[in-house]
Amino acid sequence: MTSPIKPPEGNWWDQTVNRRESIWLGLGVVWSLVLFGWMSIWTRTGDQNPIGETYQVSESEFREKMNAYEEAAEETEQGLVPEGTDVYMAGIRFAWDGAPVVLEAGTQYDFHLSSYDVQHGFSLRPEATLSKQINLQVLPGYEWVVPMTFDEPGTYHIICNEFCGEGHRSMHDTIIVTEEN
């Protein structure tokens, strides 16, 4: 008789483990290795990784970068067309500075994400397929450079998904992705 509310009797460490429990332990180890292995392999071979360079940056420094970027960019009715492949975007209660922005499909852009005030959430999805969505945390004091290549043209919607104050729900903007030239 074994009981969880009584001290085990005798040499409990050397008690035999049931064969089916041993098999399950083996399966558990294998599955844990698969989980780790796949995640690790995907960082090398996969196309979707939340990985990019990060720099510490003050609010005013990022504002300066943003100003230089916006001056170089072309303003159109649909939004900013960046000069090169760097795209700057900053959360500020309750808007996205740098958006809307017009980008091309098939080109890799470096998104520079930051915040001027509090934490924000950069949640992005194409209008046509809501199940395709990614979510990145945006922190004040940090500039995160995340490369992205859009493969399908269309309107992509940014929703803030980190609570940033009472007007949080209105913090929305767009990225317009045009056909590849």
Binding site: G46, N49, P147, T149
Partner: peptide, 13 residues
């Protein structure tokens, strides 16, 4: 879940 993720555009280094 991985299938859904792999359908996304390219993100990250």
């Amino acid at each position: 879940n991985w299938y859904l993720l792999s359908q996304l555009w390219q993100i990250g280094a």
